[in-house]
Design a protein around this nucleic acid. Structure first.
Length: 872
RNA sequence: GGAGAAUUAGCUCAGCUGGUUCAGAGCACCUGCCUUACAAGCAGGGGGUCACUGGUUCGAACCCAGUAUUCUCCACCA
């Protein structure tokens, strides 16, 4: 049977993933082996695979496959996140399309819809991960709202409450008027926005004067409860103790003094709106000001605004500006840029809002979490993220953990008829608790709010093994702490920090040892890939087009550790080409006829060289993996296979056209081929498995798969043979160069004499003859006249050419040029050596090195001069 | 406003403790080849004042200072 000329990934991909699953290779249960554990950052349950997931999960899969082949008990736990706000927003939108308003539903009915939605769309992204080849233990798949995981969340809330970390109180929080919920500080994204700075005139009571105040938010003037000036501002001394009128509504408010006000900014006067600005709130507290909240939960104005009731805040802003203008109370309007907070999930502009929320105290919890990273127990890769991690940990604020949503874990707090509350797991326990505290247990109802999604994600490395509720279970004891966490730097604080905090609080151990922070996938222009920009290719389509292995290789080639990656489709092409290269190397070997015979000297030499080169590469690759430089590890694999294996080793042993190959050599080739496949498998799982099972390599037992084959181990290697072969490569390359530059057909065999000094290259005689197409190869002791010569390592080589092929002039010029260069080089070296201070200060071996360089250059010049003379 | 990082070939990036692994890789490019594994290929080749300016040193892509540009994170100036 003849194989297709190009590799067709489709068949192999469908076949082998199913096969691996069937044979249970992804499964992991505790045993005597060393565990290697990764918990997958759970994608949003309603998510669809994007390039970021693709990168992230490819890296994890490479790590897990390699560990598995290295004999570790590799366990990769997949799962999804319930993503409170995002999912609830999607469900609300879906219901709206069906003409259903969330407000018209009870909590239970809404949740029923949400669960239906989750069942319908929840599995998509995990299916897509299968296409990528992700070798997760699917039987361990978890969802952050699975009963056991939710239970762990509730337990944790109670635990933290008992430990004194959780409290309830009225605070200024980030309010998302679209999601209609509070958010944590981390969920607020600040963006620079072009705004208008309105200079508004406030009339002074019982006077014709007015005072001008700059604001970007005229719609909030109805909530003003004071005007503030800096006590040292002489311009406004006359205003002290005065009362001013809020424009449009003429409410009377005092002028207060506080040096918080910057005299240089705006007009030096500040309108104080305690309900709608954090600073103003604090200022209001300090000066005992009234708080007038004029906004509804959805960002529309309420009756306290007195005017424009029911209008959206942004429409109201324009309307108020217009009204002020008409009333002659706008002095001027300037363009102004400022930072505005937006909801990370809904992208709605955040309103600072005063409300009753649940918080988690962070200061104390953060300390051990910082220590882990500081003392190296947890390594951040790359390290550059440590600085911002430290900064965040040292300046962490209390975490608002309550959300005014239904989708999520409902806070286990209970209220009685008097609105007193207790924290308890069940209603019964709540009753007991109330009674214990001597409070009424009548009219008990549960807290409406749910917990921040990240509160449950923070438990992920523990809760997937049921370690929160049952820390003594086998799985948890075996797999925890996990090894590597692969995630995006954007969620270092959201998620990574909180996992460390929670993990430590429960176990006094870190949840993982290494945190590999991947870059952000950007397009060629450096823009972040996003749906809204439409610049993100669909990973599934890419895989269809280039094959999964090709895309995996493409992703990794373009992703230096920790830096953003400029994704370019040409990387996928390169990956596809590489897969094809391996495929064709295989076709070559498969096509060989065999003759029962031992290997020739030349074949043995080639094999010996490749074996050592292979071992050398394995060491290099291992080092790259150790420092999490996956793209370098891949590139080293790529070069080993493409250059060393295909271009040199296979070419060296390749029999002449239609000639058979010696059986011993074929056996060796097959052996190395399999080793090379094993080395490539973590990067290109499908192609390697496909080839592994070809009859060329003999019969395979059902479980004899490359996915569980032995990963090449570190072995010593003979550097001398690698160096020697480099000389051979140079010689061949030079002869080809001469051929190329003189337009001599590769079919014309050239004579070659090699004058070796202290290297024996005779064992590569056949190889050189074949690859450089030499008619007559001789090893000589002295200079051969009438030749083109060059230097290859320590050998001088002469190619005797027919007279008509020799361009004496060109050759003379080439050699002269080279001599000139060497002379210049020699001058610089001699200059260095004659510098006394250099000889005195530099390390002896450096000086020795310079002397070697000098001798070397002199020898080369001598040879070249002789060559030049020989041209006459 | 604060902190951190980056700037090396057309592109994406390596370059560890200053000294032949110091100017590298892959891709792209140019030239020649449809040579029976592969044109998704083969052979060969040309590309760089290492952002700029000073300093330290016998010696700087590398260390220091400043400048410019870019990026990221953090931060409540109306």
């Amino acid at each position: 049977m003849s194989l297709a000329k190009t590799y067709n990934p489709k068949e192999a991909e469908n076949k082998w993933y199913a096969y691996w699953m069937e044979k249970g290779f992804f499964r992991s249960t505790p045993d005597h082996r060393e565990p290697y554990t990764i918990v997958m950052p759970p994608p949003n349950v309603t998510g669809v695979l994007h390039m970021g997931h693709m990168l992230n999960n490819t890296i994890q899969d490479v790590l897990i496959r390699r560990a598995r082949m290295q004999g570790k008990n590799a366990c990769w736990v997949p799962g999804t996140d319930h993503a409170s706000i995002a999912t609830e927003a999607k469900v609300v939108a879906m219901l709206k399309e069906q003409g259903i308003d969330k407000k018209s539903l009870t909590r239970d009915i809404f949740l029923k819809h949400a669960w239906e939605w989750k069942e319908k769309y929840g599995g998509i992204i995990l299916k897509q991960l299968e296409k990528l080849g992700a070798s997760c233990d699917w039987e361990r798949t978890k969802f952050t709202m699975d009963p056991d995981l939710s239970d762990a969340v509730i337990d944790t809330f109670i635990r933290f409450y008992k430990e004194g970390y959780i409290y309830r109180g009225v605070r200024m929080v980030n309010w998302d008027p679209q999601g209609k919920t509070a958010l944590s500080d981390e969920e607020v994204i600040r963006k620079e926005v072009n705004q208008k700075l309105y200079y508004v005139r406030y009339k002074i009571k019982d006077s014709n004067e007015y005072i001008v105040i700059a604001t970007t938010r005229p719609e909030t003037i109805m909530a003003d409860t004071a005007i503030c000036i800096n006590p040292n501002d002489e311009r406004y001394t006359h205003l002290k103790g005065k009362t001013v009128l809020v424009p449009l509504i003429d409410r009377e408010i005092p002028v207060i003094e506080d040096d918080y006000v910057e005299m240089e900014f705006g007009t030096g006067c500040l309108k104080v709106t305690p309900a709608h600005d954090l600073n103003d709130y604090e200022l209001g507290q300090k000066h005992n000001l009234e708080v007038i909240d004029i906004l509804n939960d959805d960002g529309t104005l309420n009756e306290k605004a007195q005017i424009l009731i029911g209008e959206d805040r942004f429409i109201a802003r324009k309307t108020v500006a217009k009204l002020l203008e008409e009333a002659g109370q706008i002095e001027k309007i300037e363009d102004y840029k400022s930072q505005v907070g937006f909801s990370e999930r809904t992208d709605a502009a955040i309103e600072p809002k005063l409300s009753m929320q649940w918080f988690c105290k962070m200061e104390e919890l953060a300390k051990p979490a910082l220590e882990y990273v500081e003392n190296g127990t947890i390594k951040l890769i790359p390290e550059k993220f440590f600085a911002s991690y430290k900064h965040w940990m040292e300046n962490v604020k209390d975490w608002c953990i309550s959300r005014q949503l239904w989708w999520g874990q409902r806070i286990p707090a209970w209220y009685n008829e008097k609105n007193e509350w207790v924290v308890a797991k069940t209603e019964e326990e709540a009753v007991q608790e109330f009674e214990k505290q001597g409070k009424s247990a009548q009219g008990i109802r549960q807290e409406e709010d749910v917990l921040d999604t990240w509160f449950s994600s923070g438990l992920w490395p523990m809760s997937v093994f049921d370690g929160v509720r049952n820390p003594d279970n086998e799985d948890f004891k075996y797999y925890y702490p996990t090894n590597d966490l692969v995630t995006a730097p954007e969620i270092l604080f959201f998620w990574v920090a909180r996992m460390i905090i929670m993990g430590h609080d429960y176990t006094q151990q870190p949840p993982f040892r290494n945190v590999y922070l991947t870059g952000i996938v950007r397009d060629k222009l450096g823009r972040k890939m996003s749906k809204s920009l439409g610049n993100s290719p669909d990973p599934i389509e890419l895989m269809e087009q280039y094959g999964t292995d090709g895309v995996r290789v493409g992703m990794l080639l373009s992703s230096p550790a920790g830096n953003d990656l400029m994704f370019d489709i040409s990387y996928c092409e390169q990956g596809r080409n590489f897969a094809n290269k391996i495929w064709n190397a295989f076709r070559l070997v498969k096509g060989w006829e065999t003759i029962e015979a031992p290997a020739t000297v030349a074949q043995k030499s080639a094999a010996y060289w490749f074996e050592n080169r292979f071992n050398q590469a394995v060491v290099e690759i291992d080092e790259h993996f150790k420092s999490y430089r996956l793209s370098d590890a891949l590139m080293a694999t790529y070069k080993l296979i493409w250059d060393d294996f295909c271009a040199w080793y296979l070419e060296l042993v390749k029999p002449a056209y239609q000639a058979p190959i010696e059986s011993e050599t074929l056996a060796t080739v097959k052996l190395y081929f399999q080793k090379v496949l094993a080395l490539a498998h973590p990067f290109m799982p499908f192609l390697t498995e496909e080839l592994w099972h070809d009859e060329l390599f003999g019969e395979r037992q059902p479980k004899d798969c490359v996915i569980v084959a032995t990963y090449p181990e570190i072995r010593p290697f003979d550097e001398a043979i690698i160096k020697e072969f480099e000389i051979v490569q140079q010689i061949i390359s030079e002869v080809r160069n001469i051929r190329n530059s003189k337009g001599i057909s590769p079919k014309v065999a050239l004579p070659l004499a090699i004058n070796t000094t202290d290297v024996d290259l005779t064992k590569f005689r056949d190889g050189i003859t074949k690859l450089a197409n030499i008619a007559d190869l001789s090893f000589v002791q002295e200079k051969v006249t009438g030749t083109v010569s060059f230097l290859a390592g320590k050998s001088e080589c002469y190619v005797r050419l027919d007279n008509e092929n020799v361009d004496i002039e060109a050759e003379r010029e080439r050699i002269t040029k080279e001599i000139e260069y060497l002379k210049g080089f020699l001058v610089s070296v001699e200059k260095k050596l004659s510098n006394e201070r250099f000889v005195q200060n530099a390390k002896p071996e450096i000086v020795q090195n310079e002397q070697n360089k000098k001798a070397d250059a002199e020898a080369k010049i001598k040879i070249l001069k002789e060559s030049l003379a020989g041209l006459e």
